[in-house]
C-alpha cells in the first residue's frame, strides 16, 4: 500500500535545476532515508512534498486521509510563545479539538523530553531544545506521514541517539521520510534508501539491495604472518588478495561460502588468528555511488 507516489518530480529556478525527474514511492509504515551531499536537492524535495513549494513539473499523489507532520532543518519558532502554547496552536490548526490538543501537546512534549519546559518561553530555549520542540510540533497532531529534514544532524551524539530511538518508536504507525547525511543513523532506521546527487536520484532500494549491489563483501582470514598467508593462497584456486598477513576472499557466486572456508581451515590446521566477514558500511557505499555517477 503506497501512501505517497512521486512521479518525475522536477523543480527548476530559471535554468537552474534543483530537483530533476525524481520518482519514488513511500509504502505505508516504512521509513525512507533520503541521502545526499549538501545541495543535492533534499530540502527542495521535502518542501514540495510538504506542499510548501509547487513543482515545475511532475506529480505527487498522496493517499486521501494523509495527515502530514513536517520538521524543517532549522525550525524557527515564535520566541514569545511557551512550548505548550505553540504545540497546542499547531495541533489545533491541524484539526485537533481544543481539549484534545492540550492533552496531546503535554504528552508529546513529555515524549520528546521537554516536560520541565512546558511553560517556558521558546525564546529562552537552547538549540537542542528547539530541535526537540521541532519534533514535537511535527508529531503533536498524530500524523501518519512524517517528513523530517535532517532531524538529527544538529544534535550531539547523546541527543542523536535519543531522538533516533524516539523516531524508531514512532515507526509502527507512521510513514517516515527523512533526509540525513549521517549515514550510520540511516543504516539503523531504513526500509528504503534514496541517494540523491545534483537534484537527481542516483540509487534507490532497500539497505539489503543496495548493499548487495555495491558493497562487495569479503571473507577476511588473519594469519600469524605473511608467509603462512601466502602458503594458504598458493594451495587454493579461489580469487583472493593478500595484504600482509591478511587474505581477503570476495563473496561471489563462484567463490567459497563462509562455511566452506571454515571447514577447510579446520581440516588444514592453518596458522590463523581469526576469520571475519567484512561488509562495506553505508558510508563507503554512498561515497562509491556518488563518485561513480
Amino acid at each position: 500500500m503506497n501512501i505517497v507516489e512521486v512521479e518525475n518530480l522536477t523543480k527548476r529556478y530559471g535554468a537552474e535545476s534543483a530537483v530533476e525527474d525524481l520518482s519514488f514511492v513511500l509504502e505505508k509504515g516504512t521509513a525512507t532515508a533520503l541521502i545526499g551531499p549538501n545541495g543535492a536537492g533534499k530540502t527542495t524535495s521535502l518542501s514540495m512534498l510538504a506542499n510548501l513549494l509547487s513543482p515545475t513539473s511532475g506529480k505527487i499523489t498522496m493517499e486521501k486521509d494523509v495527515s502530514l507532520g513536517f520538521l524543517p532543518q532549522y525550525p524557527q519558532f515564535f520566541p514569545w510563545l511557551t512550548a505548550v502554547e505553540f504545540t497546542e496552536l499547531a495541533a489545533k490548526i491541524s484539526g485537533v479539538e481544543t481539549k484534545q490538543a492540550r492533552l496531546q501537546s503535554i504528552q508529546t512534549l513529555e515524549f520528546v523530553g521537554l516536560e520541565s519546559s512546558l511553560h517556558k518561553k521558546i525564546g529562552s530555549f537552547s538549540g537542542g531544545m528547539k530541535q526537540r520542540l521541532g519534533l514535537a510540533q511535527a508529531i503533536v497532531h498524530r500524523p501518519n506521514l512524517l517528513l523530517l529534514d535532517e532531524p538529527i544532524s544538529a544534535l550531539d551524539p547523546t541527543g542523536r541517539r535519543e531522538i533516533m530511538n524516539l523516531l524508531k518508536s514512532l515507526q509502527q504507525d507512521t510513514t517516515i521520510l527523512y533526509s540525513t547525511h549521517i549515514l550510520n543513523d540511516a543504516e539503523e532506521m531504513t526500509d528504503q534508501l534514496l541517494f540523491m546527487k545534483d537534484g537527481r536520484l542516483i540509487e534507490q532500494g532497500s539497505l539489503k539491495e543496495v548493499k548487495k549491489k555495491h558493497a562487495n563483501p569479503y571473507i577476511q582470514i588473519k594469519f600469524r604472518n605473511h608467509t603462512s598467508a601466502l602458503e594458504f593462497v598458493g594451495s587454493h584456486t579461489w580469487k583472493c588478495e593478500v595484504e600482509e598477513n591478511l587474505v581477503l576472499i570476495p563473496v561471489s557466486n563462484s567463490g567459497p561460502t563462509m562455511q566452506q572456508v571454515l571447514h577447510i581451515l579446520s581440516t588444514e590446521k592453518q596458522d590463523i588468528i581469526g576469520v571475519e566477514f567484512q561488509d562495506a558500511s553505508l558510508e563507503e557505499i554512498f561515497l562509491k555511488v556518488v563518485a561513480a555517477k
Binding site: A50, L52, Q76, F77, A90, Q137
Partner: peptide, 13 residues
C-alpha cells in the same frame, strides 16, 4: 522572512 511562518504553512491553514 524569519521562517516562523513555515510551521504554520505546512498545516491545513
Amino acid at each position: 522572512k524569519s521562517g516562523t511562518a513555515t510551521l504554520l504553512y505546512v498545516r491545513p491553514l
